[in-house]
């Protein structure tokens, strides 16, 4: 994580919102190759909005987004996935009437070849999914669905994975499982940018973190520093 390296994702002064309201005002975020970066902050801080704006699901009104040095501001998602960035939304992140295998095939839709090979690799990472690949995603438990959602996004072997609250509404055991997988994926070389409610857990896992409040950068730093910071402890860790 050398600071000298070029950032993989460079969000600079991003402003975006819905209707006449700017939810985000000049937010800047960087993710370096191989990092796990967490964005924490209170509800309504604009964390999910930031993910959507980066991923071209919401128009960016000002500022720039660069991926590996190339401008990608306001590019549509179907083009972004081909540039090595994938995204797992917080909710509705699997295709319920499709089987596990079909979900993964759709995940690899943008691949030119090697879909079967990649599916084998992904399923090795998620043995629980490999057990019954013909099961419809709609019949899976919440935790398995979340795993499938992540697995789907991995089908393109992205350099950078965006996770929007991967632990939301999961049982404590599944939360553990999901974070373990995140660490595993990262260990295999994929950088991760993650929005989390579960701030302590997320920061424990991360290299660096950002605190967002009311649509603006509030704090940033090494994850360890943030965990020790009084302000973070008081406001976001409930201590």
């Amino acid at each position: 994580m050398t600071a000298a390296a070029m950032p993989l994702l460079d969000v600079a002064g991003l402003t975006a919102g819905y209707g006449g309201v700017d939810i985000l005002r000049g937010v800047s975020i960087r993710v370096y190759p191989g990092e796990i970066v967490s964005i924490i902050g209170p509800n309504g801080a604009g964390k999910s909005t930031l993910m959507k704006a980066i991923f071209g699901l919401l128009p960016v009104r000002a500022g720039q987004v660069r991926l590996a040095g190339q401008e990608i501001t306001n590019q549509p998602p179907e083009r972004l996935v081909r540039r090595g960035m994938c995204y797992v939304p917080q909710t509705d992140n699997v295709f319920p009437s499709l089987t596990i295998r079909e979900n993964l095939e759709i995940g690899g839709f943008a691949r030119d070849g090697g879909r079967g090979e990649r599916m084998g690799q992904v399923l090795r990472l998620f043995p629980a999914l490999a057990e019954r690949p013909g099961e419809r995603a709609g019949r899976l438990s919440g935790g398995q669905r979340q795993l499938l959602a992540i697995a789907r996004a991995l089908m393109l072997d992205p350099q950078l994975l965006l996770l929007d609250e991967p632990s939301a509404s999961l049982s404590p055991k599944m939360v553990e499982m999901v974070f373990e997988k995140v660490a595993e994926i990262n260990a295999a070389g994929t950088a991760i940018l993650m929005v989390e409610q579960n701030a302590r857990h997320a920061l424990t896992l991360s290299h660096r973190g950002y605190v967002l409040a009311a649509g603006e950068n509030r704090l940033e730093g090494e994850a360890r520093q943030l965990l020790d910071s009084d302000e973070v402890r008081r406001l976001y860790l409930g201590e």
């Binding site: 509800n43 309504g44 964390k47 999910s48 939301a168 409610q197 406001l235 976001y236 409930g238």
Partner: peptide
């Protein structure tokens, strides 16, 4: 909604952002 969102910490009810 804003009042609800202003309450910090993790136990706050989730609202769509």
């Amino acid at each position: 909604g804003a009042k609800r969102e202003a309450t910090p910490v993790e136990s706050a009810p989730r609202t769509a952002e």
